[in-house]
């Protein structure tokens, strides 16, 4: 086992407000790790620290072996990121988007060409290469955005609510891509509001008021909280939250 995300007592304060408190956990190579929590629990703040976008107030963390205080640029080169809100440029074509992202991450022109062919082939989107991304159905956009986030072969990919608003069939096709990537050794760190998707993760953490309240496999969590589904586990934990309305 090789831990690619490692945090110890990771804490972030904004003035007197403790957004994330004492986060200690590890995520292994090739693991699909579900990062859950109610609105306002501190997920986004934690993710920003892990991506090297926000300095912690205290505690330690390494991402792909790089330190979150001193090696943020190396972290950015070794991770991929996609969210429902920001993914691709709508007024660039499919091929242009791939070229743009791969170029930003420093791939050579030859590699970009190979990568483009490979991605289009894997997604069955050869016919759409010259279409504007804005004209694609949402589900296709999301699948493309995920593949683009993997174009520079990152060790870890962070997915922030990747399947919001997507139909149930496309949502499952999206998860096929996640499994495929994890099987190839990519670590997947994912947030979602769909609790059935929590069941697809190897392990899940649930944040409540800035603290990781629970962390285990869905099966063990359901046993521990005597719940039938992950939705019930989540509900039992998250309804105790006091600061959700602040």
């Amino acid at each position: 086992m090789e831990a690619v995300i490692k945090t110890e007592h990771l804490t972030k304060k904004f003035g007197t407000f403790v957004a994330c408190s004492d986060l200690t956990f590890e995520v292994q190579k090739g693991e699909i790790f579900g990062f859950l929590g109610a609105n306002g629990a501190g997920k986004t703040t934690a993710m920003r620290m892990l991506c090297g976008l926000s300095l912690p107030s205290s505690g330690q963390a390494t991402i792909a072996g790089f330190d979150v205080y001193k090696q943020t640029e190396q972290i950015k080169k070794n991770i991929g990121y996609m969210s429902q809100k920001f993914s691709l440029y709508e007024d660039l074509t499919v091929a242009e988007n791939i070229r743009f992202y791969a170029g930003i991450y420093g791939l050579s022109i030859r590699d970009i060409k190979d990568k483009t062919a490979e991605l289009l082939d894997k997604l069955g989107m050869q016919a759409e290469a010259k279409k504007l991304v804005g004209q694609l159905p949402l589900g296709w956009k999301q699948k493309l955005a995920f593949s683009v986030s993997l174009a520079h072969s990152p060790k870890i990919v962070f997915l922030d609510e990747p399947t919001g608003g997507v139909d149930p069939v496309t949502r499952r096709q999206f998860w096929d891509l996640i499994y495929y990537a994890a099987d190839a050794g990519v670590t997947v760190f994912v947030t979602t509001h769909y609790m059935d998707e929590a069941e697809y993760c190897n392990r899940v953490s649930i944040m409540v008021d800035g603290v990781i309240e629970a962390l285990d496999s869905p099966k063990n969590l359901k046993q521990q909280y005597e719940a039938k589904t992950m939705e019930d586990v989540f509900y039992k934990l998250a309804r105790k939250a006091k600061r959700a309305e602040i």
Partner: peptide
Amino acid sequence: TTGVDVVSRR
């Protein structure tokens, strides 16, 4: 309820 957590949705 889009983008809202399970507790608030209920």
